[in-house]
Simulated assay, not measured.
Amino acid sequence: MLYLLASIACSVAVSVLLKIARRQQIPVEQAVAVNYIVAVVLTMLVLKPDLSNPAQFLPTWWLFAALGVLLPTVFVIMGRAVEAAGIVKSDAAQRLSLFLPVAASFIVFGETLQEGRLIGLALAFTALFCLLWKADSGKKSAAAPQQIGLLLGVWAGYGIIDILFKQLAQSGTAFAGNLLVAFCLAGILMFAYLSAKGCRWSKEGIIGGVLLGALNFLNIVTYISAHQAMQDNPTLVFAGMNIGVICAGTLVGAWAFKEKISGLNAAAICIALAAVACLFYWDTLRGLLA
Rank of each mutant, 00 (worst) to 15 (best):
I163Q: 01
M44Q: 13
K197P: 00
L132A: 05
G244K: 00
G157L: 00
C10H: 04
G240M: 02
L179Q: 11
M190G: 05
F183H: 08
K139A: 08
I207N: 15
A182H: 08
L189C: 10
G79A: 11
Q147E: 05
S195D: 02
W62R: 11
S90Q: 03
L150E: 07
N53G: 08
I77S: 02
T112V: 14
L63Q: 05
Q56M: 09
G138W: 14
L185Y: 09
A266W: 12
G187L: 00
N178E: 04
A267P: 00
S7C: 11
P101A: 02
S262G: 11
I163F: 00
G86M: 02
N265M: 11
V46G: 03
L71E: 13
R95A: 13
N35V: 01
A66M: 06
I87G: 05
L152S: 06
A226D: 00
C270D: 14
V32Q: 07
G110L: 13
A85G: 03
G209T: 00
W155K: 14
V14C: 02
F75S: 09
G68N: 04
E259P: 11
Y193Q: 15
G86Q: 05
L113A: 14
E204F: 02
I224E: 02
M241E: 02
Q231L: 15
A104S: 09
L164D: 04
C130N: 08
H227L: 12
T112H: 12
V16F: 03
Y3C: 15
S7K: 07
C270S: 09
S105D: 02
K48S: 12
L123H: 08
S90C: 07
A104G: 01
I148A: 14
A277V: 13
M78F: 14
L100F: 04
I220S: 08
K139W: 09
K197V: 06
A272Q: 01
S105P: 09
F183K: 10
Q30I: 03
I26Q: 01
A239D: 10
A182S: 04
L17I: 04
F125M: 07
S105T: 11
A274Y: 12
L128S: 04
F183A: 12
Q170P: 01
N178D: 06
A266F: 13
V34G: 04
Q170C: 10
E111N: 03
L285N: 05
L215N: 02
Q114H: 11
A33N: 01
L180P: 03
G138T: 13
G138P: 12
